[in-house]
Structures are given as C-alpha cells and as structure tokens.
Write a protein that binds this DNA or RNA. Structure first.
Lengths: 155, 155
DNA sequence: CAGTTTTATGGCATAAAATGCCAATTGTTT
DNA sequence: AAACAATTGGCATTTTATGCCATAAAACTG
C-alpha cells in the first residue's frame, strides 16, 4: 500500500493518542471528517494500523520490575523450539520474546512485582525443556520507553 | 489507588482494544455506561491508564528490522550519563532505552529498515560521547511482542 | 443492629461524534 | 481540452458521550 503525507500525519497522531475522535483527528491533520475517517478505516483494513491499546502504569499494577532474560536452548531442533515457544506464550508475565542473533538464542522481557516474584518466575523458566545458560538483566530505569515509531514523512 | 474487579476488567478490555466505545466497554464488563465512563475517567486521572496508542505495522512503514544495542559508558559521572541519555532521546529510531544491570550499562531497542540503515545508525551511536563496548543483537523473529500486561485479578 | 452517612449505580435528556450518501472538486490520462 | 478516476466536503441519520438526578448498595456509627 502506498501512503501519502496525510496518511503519515494520521498515523503520527494516532500513535500519540489512539483515542482521538475522528473530528479531532481530522482537525489536526487538516482534512474534513469524512475523508479522514475513510483513510483511518482503510489503514486498519490494510493492516497498517494493527490495533489500539491502552498503555498502563506498571507500578500501579504491581508490575514495577522489568527483567530481560537471555537464554539458549540445549537442542536446536524444531521440536525443542516450538515446545519452548509455546511455553513462553503461555506465561503472562513474559510480555515479549524474541529470537535473536548473538550468544543467546532467545531474549525475553519479563514483568513482575519484585525480586521475590522474579525468583518464582525464573524457576519456571529454568524448568522449561531444553533451556540452558539463563542470564538475567534487571532494568534499573527506563530512559525511554514505548516510544512511537519514527515515520519517515515523504510528500 | 485501590482497584476492584471491575477496574481490572475494564483495564483488560482497554488493553486489548483501546478504541472500544464506552457503550461496548460497559457491555463487556457488565456495567451500565454511566458508571463505566466514570471509572475510566478516574483511571485516567489517577494515572493508572497512561494513554492510548495505535500500534502500527513496522514492515508496512519500512521499519522491519529490530536490533538490541548493548553498550557501556567510558565514564560513569552524572554528566556522561545525562549527555548520553539526552542524545538517545533525540534519536527517533531508538524506541526504547533502559539502564540495566549486568555487563552492559544501557540497552537500546532500535528499529530500522534494513542493515544499510542500521550501519548508519550504529555509526551515530558510536560517535556519541563516552560510548564504549557496543554489542548488537539482531531480532530474527518476534515470538511474542507487545503483549498486554498480566493483571492479577483480585475480587 | 438500626439509623445515618457515604459511595456507586442506572436512567434520562442533551450535546457531540460517527457513518453513509451524494454532489463537487481535484488531478490524470489520452 | 475532454473524459475518466479518485478524493473531498457537506448533509442527514444513527450512535455515542456526557452531565444530572434519583435510587440502591455499602460502609460507618452509636
């Protein structure tokens, strides 16, 4: 799909505030409400906009500790991978999991209330099949987080 | 702030779909629209809900490559840190930056179009003052990403 | 435990927004 | 320049948001 400057402005605004009304949005991007709504709907249908979500205060929800967990798998077969990945998908406190290059195989981002809870979760991770070489990095402070994607405005 | 089961249900729904209308939301959590809206407003005012954002398709926006960049600072003074952090805040392709424990000092998450663009960005990072020991980990695949926070439903 | 106060809820009326439709404008092509 | 295609803006209708008030539920007090 080809996006023009208006689309980028719309995406910028919705990244900053996903609950703008269409009237507000159309005003911010200098377009009348009708075509603005049409463009948003199309961006959603084309899959450029994947969805909308509330971003929540982790501390308020007793999830103030973030840990990056790097690990490797003992076996590198399809079976080991998919079994491990399925397990990780089922763990709600693991909020992201990437297959990465480098010394580790997987990098998980984990949120917990505190060290005590992290210990429990770490034990669960250790017990997953094929898991080896776990290394934890604790987040001391978020310098920058949940930033919007940089949109290379063309037109 | 004390949250009850209704609040958690509301947060759950808004994490899954931040653009639910209040009518839809109130229906999903079994509450009439008036008190539902009041609760949402209060959650926003109290800072439990930090905001709403559209989540976008990185590939569609030419940002299909994600890289974790670990690095250390040569000097560990206040000045070195704040200068580095300010630089990082000004780089749009760095979408998150954490101060972490372990061998690295900082962990950046960077989005770019491809390796060519990454090389350019890496050079920028290398030239930042005090930066040492840069290590890049490329994301091969996202097993799980942008997951909602796990809400420990009480009541 | 009854009475009182506080807090939250549900319904209603009004204001605002979303949505679909159509004419008009813009810009493209030949 | 004419014809065609795509996009826009305005309007009417439906849906939603919002503020207000009476009622119900919960908490507190003596």
């Amino acid at each position: 799909m080809k996006l023009d400057g208006l689309d980028y402005r719309i995406l910028d605004q919705l990244q900053a505030n996903g609950r703008l009304t269409n009237v507000e949005l159309s005003d911010k991007v200098n377009l009348s409400p009708s075509p603005c709504l049409r463009r948003v709907k199309q961006l959603e249908e084309e899959g450029v906009i994947l969805g909308y979500r509330a971003s929540l205060n982790r501390v308020a929800l007793d999830l103030g500790m973030t840990v990056f967990v790097d690990l490797r798998l003992g076996h590198h077969g399809d079976q080991a991978s998919s079994q491990f990945e399925a397990s990780v998908l089922a763990m709600p406190n693991v909020i992201s999991c990437y297959l990465v290059s480098g010394t580790a195989d997987y990098r998980l981002e984990v949120v917990v209330k505190d060290l005590q809870h992290y210990e429990l979760l770490l034990r669960q991770i250790q017990m997953l099949p094929f898991v080896k070489d776990i290394h934890s990095n604790f987040v001391i402070r978020a310098v920058k987080g949940e930033s919007p994607l940089p949109l290379n405005t063309p037109t």
